[in-house]
Amino acid sequence: MRIKDLIDKSKHIQFIWIHNHGESKLAEINELTEKDLSYKFEWFEITEYHGKPCIEFNL
């Protein structure tokens, strides 16, 4: 499954945190690039960032 597939089904998510081989990227959902959205992930977790809903993806 790609990040875009999950985001399209999610509601009320404001932040996305992408963890990839020791590097991390935190962005608001509307700041994600097409490349970010196309990544396939191993697992995800719904958390909070500054009190706002966040999905963390591990690639």
Rank of each mutant, 00 (worst) to 15 (best):
E45R: 01
L59P: 08
H50D: 10
K11H: 13
S10K: 01
I46D: 01
H19L: 13
I3T: 03
F44N: 04
E31I: 02
E56Y: 03
L37C: 10
I16E: 01
N30S: 15
E48L: 14
W17H: 11
H19M: 12
E42I: 04
H19V: 10
L6V: 15
I18E: 08
L26Y: 07
I55R: 01
P53E: 10
W17S: 11
K35A: 14
K52L: 12
C54H: 02
K52G: 04
E31W: 01
Y39C: 07
E28M: 11
N20E: 14
T47H: 04
L6R: 07
E45Y: 01
N58R: 11
F41V: 02
S38K: 15
G22P: 12
D36Y: 07
K4M: 03
C54Q: 06
N30R: 11
E23N: 14
Y39W: 13
K25C: 06
G22D: 12
A27T: 08
K35R: 13
I18F: 06
W43P: 00
H50E: 13
H19Q: 15
W43V: 06
T47Q: 07
H12I: 00
L32F: 07
K35W: 08
W17R: 13
E23P: 00
E48R: 10
K52S: 09
I46Q: 02
S24C: 07
Y39H: 15
H19K: 15
K4H: 05
P53Q: 13
N58Q: 06
H50I: 12
I7P: 01
F15T: 00
L37Q: 12
S38L: 11
L59A: 05
E34V: 02
E23I: 11
I3W: 03
N30H: 15
K52D: 09
D36H: 10
N58I: 01
I7E: 00
D8T: 10
I3L: 08
F15R: 00
E45Q: 03
N20Q: 15
F44Q: 03
D36Q: 07
E31F: 05
K9P: 04
M1N: 14
G51P: 02
Y49Q: 03
E42K: 14
L26P: 07
E28F: 08
F44C: 11
K4T: 08
G51T: 01
P53T: 08
E31S: 10
L59G: 04
P53I: 00
N58C: 05
W17Y: 12
S38F: 07
L32S: 09
F57K: 01
P53V: 02
K40R: 11
F41I: 00
Q14G: 06
D8V: 07
I55M: 06
E56Q: 10
I46P: 00
E45T: 02
I3E: 00
D36M: 07
D8F: 07
I18V: 13
K11Q: 14
T33I: 10
T33L: 11
I18G: 04
D36C: 09
E34D: 14
T33P: 12
D36P: 12
F44H: 07
S38Y: 09
N20H: 15
S38R: 09
E28V: 11
H50N: 13
C54P: 00
Q14P: 03
L32M: 06
E23Y: 11
I18Y: 02
G22H: 14
F15S: 04
I18R: 02
F57Q: 02
N20T: 12
I46T: 10
E42F: 04
